[in-house]
Design a binder for these strands. Structure first.
Lengths: 340, 340
DNA sequence: GCGGGGTTTACAACCGGTTGCAAACATGAT
DNA sequence: ATCATGTTTGCAACCGGTTGTAAACCCCGC
């Protein structure tokens, strides 16, 4: 038995096969598939027809080899236990696909393979790397930068490393907008609930919030520390606060760093039968936020735009690293309003 | 300015560069990097040294082109809103990476690109496709099978399509084991809580459970329908049951299809101050299950083994499609025991 | 009928590896 | 010293595309 005769019995249909079928040479086939190439309309027509009949689909490895561009983006992901991450992965990948890119998932969360994974991605000639909600160690950045000149983008997070591209939601602006919203409601005693203290995510958001309040001569009265981005943590933090603070002295409104925390907070109010006694605002606009049980007022990050911007930066590999902050959208539901 | 002189100034270090440095020919370099090739130890030594000095890393596109194997596995994912999926993606990708594979994430959840995504994966010559918790339409299977001969594996789910490889936890066996556990506790009135009725996942689990109980002459007394795999749904389902059933007639034990539901159920008991009045068993062993607040007895799926089996099937492309069911592990904590 | 300008197309070389083949070499037995 | 055997190594060809160049072609005006 022979090994795959070129034309007929072999599984793979190559450009040469199409060429033969269409009565042209394989170079013409290649040109027929590239946008601005000089091919006569009728030649292209014939090629495309032949390709369709034979079910030809170009081998992207071969193409990548010559073009030095693969349309693959490495998605470096950490913290695989953060449920919020899933929605980020979701929008990122689907947006990438829509733009003709494919995502190679590099899971950094387990053990020490940080270097190995990135190196592997490099060997596959990825067009760029997107870091998704990763705690981006300097080691990691260094690693990625020295390997080859791969465009790096940190998405959704704010890295303070100045050598790296950042595409993220403008937290400062969001904080201000939310401050404005709460001031409209004429709250005076206003608080903030924070998750893990590490994230620089928090900083800009809280800064903007502070500055927004300050414009009206107000300040953040109380910062509640929830510890983690988990419903129970938000629940307990507010529960504890309510239990230890006299009603007259309580906060009138609370901006939570995160929808998860906000929902915990709403649950805590409900559990004490005090729903509506405190205006609550979250951040992210997760699915549950829209449920009528919560009707959580929150701030939606412009996920699609963020991804597209990241892709743009990979595609054109902007010269000097710069952070790009996009505004999100305030989603007004009911939870920020007084109802009693 | 010239375009990348081959050896020195060009970014990319190729096998030829290494060859020159090591004083051998590039073919020897290639052989030094393949496992069972015939190369003299000292030649390999020199090549490896030169490669290390130059920072050579083989171009995997080129390798894939000739070897017809890429070490890339397409991970077809749907239902991107199922939080359980994240942990599946996590273990799957990290296990793949550990085995030298890379995962290309194909997000099917949005719109109509089912075909496009799979076709794209094919063009990248993926070694196989793994369907992860996907509602696997026949159209999808057909599509994937006709394109090229790509090994397909459905992971974690039980497809009833006989033309397709399935690697999954043995739900029937799990059901029996759990039945056995509950019988050991001498419960008589035993129930089952189900999520969406569609999944064939459920069937085998419930079948095994039924058969296990039947061995002792018992049956499933009550099937509670929670609707979705969400905590609130489990909560409400049990809450409603408790509210409408006289204490004397209540179930003594309840096997929930899912830890999420089980946790909802535990919360419902707690909310009524009846914690410990009903033995609860879940399925999956999610993180929360281990928390002392729940101490949920559950059944852990052998995730690593499942992935490895899937990889094995992709690598060796088993001839006839067959389903492969692996046993999981019963995790006994406290929630299945009587405490009052 | 011929030469000039613009398109199309064929060709060769290449991207960066792998692999079958045969020559070169080393080894040990006779 | 000779030969059979086994191991290394160099070479050419190839994987399936792309791209620069040069030849072939077309249309047109002179």
């Amino acid at each position: 038995m022979r090994k795959r005769s070129k034309t007929s019995n072999g599984q793979r249909v190559t450009a040469s096969d199409v060429a033969e079928r269409a009565g042209v040479s394989k170079w013409t086939v290649s040109r027929a598939f590239t946008e601005g190439a000089s091919v006569s309309p009728q030649a292209r027509e014939r090629v495309l027809a032949a390709a369709a009949e034979l079910g030809y689909r170009p081998n992207l490895l071969a193409r990548g080899l010559t073009k030095h561009r693969t349309q693959i983006v490495g998605l470096v992901v950490d913290e695989m236990d953060n449920p919020n991450l899933l929605s980020l992965i979701n929008t990122t990948t689907s947006q990438l696909q829509r733009q003709g890119y494919l995502a190679m998932l590099l899971n950094i969360s387990s053990e020490h393979d940080h270097g190995a994974a990135i190196s592997l991605a490099d060997q596959f000639q990825v067009d760029g790397l997107i870091f998704l909600g990763t705690v981006l160690t300097d080691e990691l950045v260094h690693l990625a930068q020295q390997i080859r000149h791969i465009p790096l983008v940190v998405l959704y997070r704010n890295s303070d490393n100045p050598n790296i591209q950042v595409v993220s939601t403008d937290g400062y602006r969001a904080g201000r907008e939310i401050a404005g919203l709460l001031l409209e409601q004429e709250y005076r005693r206003i608080g903030y609930m924070t998750g893990p203290v590490s994230g620089s995510t928090r900083l800009s958001r809280l800064d903007g919030f502070r500055d927004g309040l300050a414009e009206q001569g107000l300040a953040v009265d109380e910062v509640l520390e929830a510890g983690h981005y988990r419903r129970e943590c938000g629940f307990r933090a507010l529960e504890h606060y309510l239990a230890t603070t006299a009603p007259a002295e309580r906060l009138e409104a609370l901006f939570c760093e995160n929808d998860i925390l906000a929902i915990g907070a709403l649950d805590a109010l409900k559990a004490r039968g005090e729903s509506g006694s405190m205006g609550i605002v979250g951040f992210d606009d997760i699915k549950q936020a829209a449920s009528p049980a919560y009707a959580l007022t929150t701030y939606r990050q412009p996920l699609e735009s963020l991804v597209n911007e990241a892709i743009r930066r990979i595609r054109f590999d902007e010269a000097q690293p710069r952070r790009h902050l996009l505004p999100g959208e305030l989603i007004q539901r009911d939870s920020h309003r007084r109802t009693n």
